[in-house]
Design a protein around this nucleic acid. Structure first.
Length: 526
RNA sequence: GUCCCCAUAGUCUAACGGAUUAGGACACUGGGUUUUCAUCCCAGCGAUGGGGGUUCGACUCCCCCUGGGGGCACCA
């Protein structure tokens, strides 16, 4: 029987799940699903200083939102738990003790300062900065002396001084590292928590991971890990180091590259599958460069040997395009459900933020400027909430509006600027629109005439409206544009938007007349 | 600095020594449709980083250079 495929995704909760992490999770997930194996989620939260519990939660939320489900991990206990490293401390300590007993590791009493000094010197000599092994040969009395000084030991792994360690990578072949480059590294910190390389190895071995799929940036760590597997008498897994995702400037993706967290894309109103589809194409492709995949299709077609080796730059423009494409392919009912679901999430987020803002207010730590920003934000949010309320209360109207905005939005948050005028009675006129379309001598009389003819219209429908407008342009010797443009601005306040007569019908005769009056009123005051 | 990885258009990529004007997609430019914007349709722009080899033949294999990225932490 073939061995079951077991892969893992092991984020550390020191920040929101970012795009790179999500892509790594995706490749692991695809590999597991393709091979009918298991995906294990493990939270690497051993850095007590930087790890935060809410980041674990939000990472899992992000994964769930993307639809990347795991078979073992938090919330899905399996046979190899616990799945939080912070709950496995005694395991690491046990194995570290074992290595000491076998003389494969030793106690190190060096202080931070001593190490920095030593590294600095080596750098000055143009040598590779690495631990010089000074505590390898400490005698018991020396240790006692150091302990009496109050020094807490860490545990270092004895790296063989000679020899070469090979990493067999499925993507890159055999990569060799000479052991003398490595220097004895720490496996257990002085606070008794494990260092990354150590915890990683212990867990992957104990959780019976068969294949480690992770970012390129871990390739240089791998020889250390392989040495540990050997020392512990564990068999090491297979390795696949996938290329990294870089920012637009070619540097490692970081906070300064606009939105990098999965949650920010969720808030913006991206469809999870559009993000997944886009991410799959970063470093992987089919022979025919297919762009769109259904879920089942992607699982079926995914294979590691079609994964590329070079880093990819994250192109948010293409992601936007792809999201818009997915939106356009949806039927309006499905689209509405998505809108609505998205909006509920946003509201919850918003309420949390408001609470936080109010707390600051109470404490009195907000400046007037901050308060202003919060005020503006809240008003905007209120308008948006109002829009969604009306959407929900009037499904018929919603059904009319959705098709009009559908080809015009790339992400859900676009809907506000596309459709706000449907709901806002006293919208502001765009100033350039007023200058270019309304500030003409003929406009007031034109609008009055339009108003008159609309009132006389037997039926308020697209065709009759358009016929009316076209006739009017002839009667006045105006181009159609000269008639349509001012009317658009009058009804929407904007220069662009859905078809003029379509939107007029949605607004209704009464509202259209009211808006024309409002514009005439506004022009009088100019 | 040093070790490791990588290298097809601005970007994501295809072509796993031989049917190719080096294919597709995003972006960009132009045109068509439309009352605007978007959509949609058509067209265009644009790449094998440089230099040596190997071979009858290199995007593809080898070497050097250059460029980019990553590691070298009591971070993961």
């Amino acid at each position: 029987m073939k061995e079951e495929v077991r892969v893992r995704f092991a984020p550390s909760p020191t920040g929101e799940l970012h795009i790179g992490g999500a892509r790594t999770a995706l490749f692991n997930w695809l590999f597991a699903r393709h091979n009918e194996g298991k995906l294990i989620l493990r939270i690497e939260d051993t850095d007590v200083v930087r790890s935060r519990k809410n980041f674990s939660k939000s990472a899992m939320d992000s994964l769930r939102w993307l639809g990347l489900d795991w078979d073992e991990g938090p919330g899905k206990e399996g046979d190899y738990g616990p799945y939080f490293q912070s709950q496995r401390l005694s395991i690491y300590q046990k194995y570290a003790g074992k290595l000491i007993e076998e003389k494969k590791a030793y106690l190190c009493y060096c202080t931070q300062e001593e190490l920095e000094e030593s590294n600095r010197k080596m750098r000055a000599k143009n040598e590779l900065p690495r631990y010089d092994g000074r505590c390898r040969t400490l005698s018991p009395t020396q240790m006692v002396n150091l302990e009496e000084k109050g020094r807490l030991p860490s545990i270092r792994f004895k790296v063989p001084e000679k020899g070469i360690t090979y990493v067999e990578d499925l993507l890159r072949g055999k990569v060799s590292f000479s052991n003398e480059m490595m220097g004895d590294f720490i496996i257990l910190k002085s606070n008794k928590t494990p260092a990354f390389n150590f915890a990683n190895v212990i867990d992957d071995a104990l959780m019976r991971i068969t294949c480690v799929i992770r970012g390129d940036d871990h390739l240089s760590n791998t020889p250390r890990q392989i040495l540990l597997y050997k020392a512990l008498n564990f068999e090491n897994p297979q390795y696949v180091h996938i290329p990294m995702i870089l920012g637009k400037d070619g540097a490692k993706l970081s906070k300064r590259h606009a939105a990098t967290s999965v949650s920010s894309y969720r808030k913006e109103g991206y469809l999870p599958w559009a993000l997944v589809n886009y991410l799959a194409l970063l470093g992987w492709s089919t022979a025919d460069s297919q762009q769109f995949f259904e879920k089942e299709e992607l699982i079926e077609k995914f294979s590691l040997d079609k994964v590329g080796k070079s880093a990819a730059i994250f192109d948010s423009q293409k992601l936007e395009w792809m999201n818009g494409e997915y939106i356009r392919r949806m039927n309006w009912g499905g689209l509405w459900d998505r809108f609505d679901g998205w909006w509920r999430i946003i509201q919850v987020e918003q309420e949390k933020q408001e609470k936080r803002a109010n707390m600051f207010k109470e404490v009195g730590s907000t400046t007037t400027k901050m308060a202003e920003i919060i005020q503006v934000e809240q008003e905007k949010q209120e308008k948006r909430a109002n829009m969604f309320r009306q959407f929900r209360e009037d499904p018929d109207k919603m059904a009319e509006i959705i098709p009009l905005v559908q080809p015009r939005i790339k992400v859900f948050s676009d809907i506000f600027e596309q459709a706000d005028f449907f709901f806002e009675k006293d919208f502001n006129y765009d100033s350039t629109a007023v200058d270019r379309r309304l500030k003409k001598d003929y406009v007031p009389s034109l609008l009055k005439e339009i108003r008159k003819r609309i009132e006389q219209l037997s039926a308020f429908r697209e065709e009759t409206l358009e016929g009316m407008a076209r006739n009017l342009s002839k009667d006045f010797s105006l181009t159609t544009g000269q008639v349509f443009h001012p009317l658009r601005v009058s009804l929407t306040g904007k220069m662009k938007g859905p078809g003029l007569f379509e939107l007029a019908v949605v607004l209704g005769k009464k509202e259209v007349l009211r808006r024309i009056d409002r514009t005439l009123e506004m022009l009088r005051k100019l």
